[in-house]
Structure formats: structure tokens, C-alpha cells
Design a protein around this nucleic acid. Structure first.
Lengths: 327, 327
DNA sequence: GTGAAAGCGCTAACAA
DNA sequence: TTGTTAGCGCTTTCAC
């Protein structure tokens, strides 16, 4: 493997000049710069990142911590982070905490020691720990807000309102809400908007695991409330609710309407296709990474950013029977 | 940030001893080892990976190259790689090539210069390029075989056979096969088993994009063949086929049976639940990473490993009407 | 078993 | 603009 020294020798310049020619081109005379670049290409020179990191104090790595890569929502965020990072010639060190809260703190510590900045997606880490992490290095939160720390979240309260308004417009007056993990920031945030629409009564049927199975468990509870529509913490739950409803002979949307959150791929694969609040996950990954880069350069503090969401009306919602428009 | 030097001073030993105490414990006397470890913990010492890498020539990073993180199958592989790598105190540098074949070669080159080994998941990179990559450093292929290179694949030919046998047992005699990308190794591998079951005629309806939309496009073609069942390259396609069939008023499984490949989450979320060939994606990630570690230590060549697959019968397949068992 | 010393490949003052 | 000189923090001979 060719080193920078080799390139310098081949180009007939000092290592320092070679270094400059490659990483700060305009500080070097045109002629020499060309010679260096040419030599680098000819030798197939690849900079040694470890050496660069050691010498410059910048690893060129962005850390990404996620609860579960296999969850399509997190994977989408990862994709965004990845794309944006590569755009600025950074690479991504990824850590899946496997929903293990205990390991998480340690994983973050470990990672943080070796990256320039961290994108942290940890719905459940105690706020106090998050602050500790933030003190240890540049960090941007995704899908969670902590006072004073930079974050990228979704305006899902607005999403809840949109969903509720949509349901009201369809004649629904009583909606059941199937919540996500109690300790999650986004669930708390959504719950706050539950009373935001006049004329719609919302019954909370509690917290459920944000997976398909959580939805099947919640479906019976939702049915029991007598609500004519159910709004779910996420699509996985919504899909679970729909499965269970179908199994019990309840038809969606004729008997009951269902709304999800996230707009994962599966939402459009099922029948009826799921009406859901789409949240720009991949964009959040972009945004967080950009913010991280700014944090590091400008040294600014970074405001929380709240990305807009959008209700996507598909087939799982329809006019409530008893108030259906007469045709 | 405390350095190893700080730890050494605090423990009253030389940096060399401190280094040994931490990374080769049994080469140091018990007493000193304890002193060093204690000091390290007290100071919150975190080794600087870049320095370790530079000095030892080992980055402690495993590279992972994938076509698309947002694709649940690849995300599952990533999860496996990640878990296994952490188990051996390595971290994962991830690169999503975004299905961009041109960028891919460069991404790999770049990554390869800075990792100890690479897990490469690239269904479409030309074989010759793959060999180049393999020459540049330790590398394990996932879901693809190249003569002489270590790889982890799935015995999906056996999966095709299982699926076909299942369909034959249900009375199907004519099956349509909806293929994946022409240039993909796994599609070629599956196609080879299409004629493996006597009494079942398989009509190939061509290559399709391995996404939902690809399936909806293929559904009409499959129908046109007059086949009573359709076997798909993957679940996304199968789901697309089912959507389209439903839209055309064709009922699954009563009118036509559908079988997928992969067993992604969505396969169990839809109705009817998809019968599919489950492939151990996450395990493949584990396996590939383990293999990579062996490659590096033993220096062995690494045999190709072919993981078993399993047909999961759900609701999208049923006896063919005209030959249905009489009840 | 332990320490001193020499780098790993690069960047960043500082001089020239 | 360029070269010289020091390291970055760690591992690893090599003596002791």
C-alpha cells in the first residue's frame, strides 16, 4: 500500500506538500499540485485514515446508534445518515443496541471516543444519561427532544391532529389510541395532541410494544371501547391491529377505521392499504448528519429541528357507517 | 480524555506495561495488572482506536457494503454482522451503495483501505471486480458465490425445490416463476432448480425489479400463463403480485397460490399471510463476520458456506381447485 | 516481567 | 509557496 511519503517522493516534493496538495489544494502551486495528484493516482494511493485521525484529531467517522437495525424505520434513518455522511467524505460507524438499554450507555461511550460526532436514536435512554453523552462530544438526537440539545424530530403532534381531523371529517366521533412504549419521547409527544380536535373523543387503550404483535394484543382493547376508529403509535402496531380485527371478523374500514404512523413500506403492501402519517425518516437522517457537521465546524449550539409530517390517506379509513354520506 | 500514558503514570508503570496489562493481560504480573486496570477505570480511560490502528496495523473495523439499507433483507444481514462484530470488540463501518454499481467499486476500495476485512453484499458487481477486491484484502461474500472466494449463501435451490414440491402436493401442475434481476447470482441459482420437481411445469415470466412494484408488473404476466401458482424471487415481489391479483379480482389462494422468498416481516402482516421460503439473513451476517475473523487469524482460505432455508407454509397457498381433495 | 526507544502515516506549526 | 520538524497515542521490538 502506497503511503503519502511514496507519493511525495514520486512527485518530487516533501510529504507536507503532498499532504497539502491532496487536502488543501489551493495552498499549493498548480504545477506541484498536479504532479502530486497524478502521482497519487498512479500509485493508487489511499490515505490511511487512522494516521489522519491520529495526526489531526478528526476521525472522519460519524457514529450512529440505533435500537434495532431490523426495524424498517431505523433502517431508513440509517440510510439517510449514511448518504449524507458519504457526501461529506465521512464514514459511518453503526451500532445496533438491540433494544438493550443497559448496554446502550457503554456502547455510546465506546463509540463516542472514536468518532467526530454521534447521531443518537435512543427513544428510551434516561434524559440524564443523554446529557452526559452530549457533554462527551458532539451529538444530535433523532426522534427525541431534550431541552438544550440539538435534535431532529417529527411534528407528530400535528400528525395526530391531522389524523383526528381526517377521522372527524369522515364522521368518527370516538377514536381509540393505541400507544407505544411509555418511556418513549415520541409517544408522549403524540399523546399531547390527543385532545386537539374538538368533537372527537379519544380513549387511550394504553402502551404497547411497537411491533406487530403489540397491535394484535391491542386490537381487542380498542374494540372494547366502542370506538369507530383506531389511531396507532406506529404502522407495525396498526398492521397488527388490522390482522387481529380481520381474525375477529371485523372489517376494516367498513366496521372500523385504522390509522398508523410512519408509512413503512408494508403500509402500502397490505389490503386494505393503510392510511398513515408519513414521517420523513431518511430526511431526518440527512438533517441530523448535516447538523452534526455544522456543530463541529461552526461550533454553534444547534437548534432542535422539527420535520413536517403528512397524512397519507389510503384505504383503511372510511366514513363511519352511521354518519356516512348518503349517496 | 485520558491517554494510556496517564494510566501508566497513575499506576506507576511504563506505558508499555500499561499497554500489555490491557491488551495481553497474561504477560504482566498480577499485581501490576490490577493496578493498571484499576487506574484505567478510575480515569475513565478509553483507548484511542486510531492510535491503536496506526501502531498495530489493525483498525478494529469491519466493513459492510450493502446495496440498500432500507431493504429489510439487507438490514437483517447488517444486524447480524453488527452483533457478531461487537461480540469480538470490532466495530462496523457501513456503506450503502444505493444500488449504484459504478460508485460501488470506489466505495469498496475506499473502505477496504481502512478496515481489517470486508463483508460484501453485492448481487450485481461483475465477478472480475469482485476478484480484484478480494485480492486487496480479506473479504467474505454474502448471498453470492464466486469460485475460490469465501462466501455465505443460502441453499435457495433447495428452497425452490421445497416450494415446488409443496405446490405439487397441493395439486398444482403449472407454476409461473417471477424472476429477480437478471444479473443477480441468487436469481441464477434459483432458476437452476426450476425443473427439479417432476410433474410440475414451470413457466418463467422473466426478470423483475425485486420490489413491490416489480411484482405488480409481473402479476399480469403470470396470470396470462394460465399457471395455478406463482413462485416469486422474493417477498416484495410476491406482495406486489398479491396486490395486483387482488386488484384484478383474482383471489389468493383460492384462484391462484403465491409463494415468496425471504420471509420478511411483512410476509406475516398481510392477508392472506404469505407462504414463503425463509432464509436466515441475520445468521448469514453472523456467519460471514465469523468467517472474516477466521480468515484474518488462521489465514485459512475459507470455504463457501451454504445456509439451509426453510419453507414456511402460511395462507397464500392452497390446493388447486380442480384437483382439490374432496371433503 | 519490565522499561526504553523507535516508529506506524499523517498533519500542523514553524521557518525559510 | 515550500520544506523541516515535531508529534498525535499506541504497540512492539529489543535489551535488561
Amino acid at each position: 500500500m502506497a503511503t503519502l511519503r511514496d507519493v511525495a517522493v514520486a512527485a518530487g516534493v516533501s510529504p507536507a506538500t503532498a499532504s497539502r496538495a491532496l487536502s488543501a489544494p489551493d495552498t499549493v502551486s498548480t504545477a506541484r499540485r498536479h504532479r502530486v495528484i497524478e502521482a497519487a493516482e498512479r500509485l493508487g494511493y489511499q490515505p490511511n485514515r487512522s494516521a489522519q485521525a491520529l495526526a489531526s484529531g478528526q476521525s472522519g467517522h460519524v457514529g450512529l446508534v440505533l435500537p434495532d437495525l431490523a426495524n424498517p424505520s431505523f433502517a431508513a434513518i440509517a440510510k439517510g445518515v449514511q448518504a449524507q455522511a458519504r457526501g461529506s467524505r465521512n464514514s459511518v460507524l453503526i451500532a445496533d443496541t438491540d433494544e438493550d438499554a443497559r448496554a446502550e450507555r457503554e456502547i455510546v461511550r465506546d463509540l463516542q471516543a472514536n468518532v467526530d460526532g454521534l447521531v443518537l436514536c435512543s427513544p428510551r435512554m434516561p434524559e440524564e444519561q443523554i446529557r452526559e453523552c452530549a457533554a462527551a462530544g458532539p451529538l444530535v438526537l433523532v426522534n427525541r427532544e431534550v431541552e438544550g440539545l440539538p435534535s431532529v424530530t417529527f411534528d407528530s403532534a400535528a400528525g395526530v391532529t391531522q389524523a383526528l381531523q381526517h377521522l372527524r371529517a369522515l364522521g368518527h366521533r370516538h377514536v381509540a389510541y393505541v400507544g407505544g412504549p411509555t418511556s418513549s419521547w415520541s409517544d408522549a409527544h403524540r399523546r399531547r395532541a390527543l385532545g386537539s380536535v374538538d368533537g372527537v373523543e379519544v380513549t387511550d387503550v394504553g402502551s404497547h410494544r411497537p411491533v406487530h404483535q403489540g397491535g394484535v394484543a391491542a386490537a381487542d382493547l380498542a374494540l372494547e371501547t366502542g370506538a369507530t376508529a383506531v389511531l396507532c403509535y406506529n404502522d407495525l402496531i396498526a398492521l397488527g391491529v388490522m390482522s387481529r380485527l380481520r381474525a375477529r371478523g371485523v372489517t376494516v374500514p367498513d366496521d372500523i377505521s385504522v390509522v398508523g404512523f410512519d408509512d413503512i413500506g408494508a403500509a402500502s403492501y397490505v389490503s386494505p392499504m393503510l392510511t398513515t402519517v408519513a414521517i420523513p425518516l431518511t430526511r431526518a437522517g440527512h438533517e441530523a448528519t448535516t447538523m452534526l457537521e455544522q456543530l463541529r465546524s461552526d461550533g454553534t449550539d444547534g437548534h432542535p429541528v422539527r420535520l413536517p409530517v403528512e397524512l397519507v390517506v389510503r384505504e383503511s379509513t372510511s366514513p363511519h357507517a352511521s354518519t356516512a354520506p348518503l349517496t
